[in-house]
Simulated scan of single mutants.
Amino acid sequence: MINIPELLYIWYYKAPKIKNHTPRIIPEGQQEVEIFFSGKGFFEYEDSLLEVVSGTILWHTPGDKTIYMNDLEHPYECIVVAFKYENIRNMPRVSHWTDKSLLQQFISDILNEYHKDCPDMTKLACYVYGQLYWQSKAPDNKMPLHEKRSIEIQRVINFIEKHFAQNINIDNLSQVADISVPHFHSLFKKFTGNTPYHFIQARRLQEAKILLASTRLSVKEITLKSGFHDVGNFCRVFKHNNGVTAQEYRLRYTDKR
């Protein structure tokens, strides 16, 4: 049985647009996981340079340095999860989350739970550590998408990741997959667990939360950048899914240092 360490914090990080920046050194008593979901960087690992892309998981223990080498055209973005360190490295230093749709859902789930008014940190620690343990120990683990259509669905997921801020409809997506609209809708839900509409909405909400917490953009600007286009609709959807308004979310989770 694995021992679930205490969860200290979860936060979002986007690399600055410079080639190299100062790495952080993990302090005593703490371990950090960098979960990459966008962009590209490079990491010194076992005397070689490892390319870090979406799905890469880096697990750091005290004294380790975080990633600091960046791709200028596509700066990397990651979720950082910190746990208390108990003198045992249970996880491999580098692993990979192969299924991007599951990774996207995982990130959305943990951010939504962490940013609740009174998050259950013990429950969240169990979920986060358990998922990371599974992915790190079985890096080739995938959803059971053995049908040949899995390639087309993954192509659609990649398309959504690149174009979620634009006006996307199911006709566009079915064309990307080269599958008829009715068949595409059922296959997409089977493979991802969500309808195309809810999958896109979840990605847009995630982007909005990141922008609210990490920029000074207005709610109107964030509405457009996250793909909602209508401020009134965005505000209603955001509050319905998060329990607070966009402005309340910003006040709670913007770094005030």
Rank of each mutant, 00 (worst) to 15 (best):
residue 216 R to G: 07
residue 109 D to Y: 08
residue 38 S to Y: 14
residue 59 W to M: 06
residue 57 I to S: 04
residue 155 R to I: 06
residue 121 M to F: 13
residue 49 L to N: 08
residue 233 N to R: 09
residue 203 R to W: 00
residue 156 V to L: 02
residue 139 P to A: 08
residue 207 E to A: 13
residue 98 T to L: 14
residue 250 R to S: 00
residue 184 F to C: 01
residue 2 I to F: 11
residue 124 L to H: 06
residue 257 R to W: 09
residue 140 D to Q: 12
residue 196 P to E: 02
residue 34 E to P: 01
residue 253 Y to F: 14
residue 83 F to Y: 07
residue 45 Y to H: 15
residue 240 H to S: 09
residue 182 P to D: 04
residue 120 D to A: 04
residue 215 T to W: 08
residue 108 S to A: 10
residue 121 M to D: 01
residue 73 E to P: 01
residue 90 N to P: 03
residue 205 L to M: 09
residue 73 E to W: 03
residue 90 N to G: 09
residue 147 E to G: 01
residue 39 G to C: 13
residue 48 S to C: 10
residue 77 E to V: 08
residue 114 Y to C: 03
residue 176 V to P: 01
residue 224 L to F: 14
residue 24 R to V: 10
residue 194 N to L: 02
residue 129 Y to W: 15
residue 22 T to F: 14
residue 127 Y to F: 15
residue 115 H to M: 14
residue 228 F to G: 00
residue 125 A to T: 05
residue 3 N to W: 09
residue 180 S to C: 02
residue 66 T to W: 07
residue 188 F to K: 03
residue 175 Q to D: 12
residue 231 V to R: 12
residue 192 T to F: 00
residue 252 R to D: 11
residue 152 E to M: 03
residue 68 Y to M: 04
residue 98 T to S: 14
residue 144 P to N: 05
residue 180 S to I: 11
residue 22 T to C: 10
residue 134 W to V: 15
residue 93 R to Y: 11
residue 9 Y to Q: 05
residue 9 Y to K: 04
residue 250 R to Q: 03
residue 158 N to S: 13
residue 70 N to E: 06
residue 73 E to R: 09
residue 240 H to I: 08
residue 243 G to C: 10
residue 150 S to A: 06
residue 238 F to R: 01
residue 138 A to E: 12
residue 154 Q to W: 07
residue 38 S to V: 04
residue 87 N to V: 07
residue 17 K to N: 11
residue 141 N to P: 00
residue 193 G to N: 02
residue 257 R to Q: 09
residue 38 S to L: 13
residue 213 A to N: 14
residue 217 L to Q: 11
residue 142 K to R: 10
residue 63 G to Y: 12
residue 125 A to G: 03
residue 146 H to I: 05
residue 65 K to G: 01
residue 34 E to M: 11
residue 170 I to Y: 02
residue 55 G to P: 03
residue 34 E to L: 14
residue 72 L to R: 01
residue 41 G to V: 13
residue 226 S to G: 14
residue 52 V to L: 03
residue 221 E to I: 09
residue 58 L to D: 02
residue 23 P to L: 09
residue 122 T to V: 15
residue 138 A to F: 14
residue 67 I to Q: 05
residue 79 I to W: 07
residue 245 T to N: 06
residue 85 Y to P: 00
residue 41 G to N: 05
residue 60 H to V: 13
residue 79 I to E: 05
residue 43 F to R: 00
residue 162 K to T: 13
residue 7 L to C: 11
residue 190 K to A: 04
residue 211 L to D: 06
residue 231 V to P: 00
residue 5 P to A: 15
residue 142 K to D: 00
residue 116 K to E: 12
residue 229 H to E: 13
residue 101 S to A: 10
residue 20 N to Y: 12
residue 71 D to G: 08
residue 164 F to L: 11
residue 197 Y to F: 05
residue 58 L to H: 05
residue 100 K to M: 07
residue 93 R to P: 02
residue 140 D to R: 05
residue 68 Y to T: 05
residue 245 T to H: 00
residue 252 R to C: 10
residue 200 I to T: 04
residue 171 D to Y: 10
residue 48 S to V: 07
residue 16 P to R: 15
residue 32 E to D: 11
residue 30 Q to L: 05
residue 97 W to A: 06
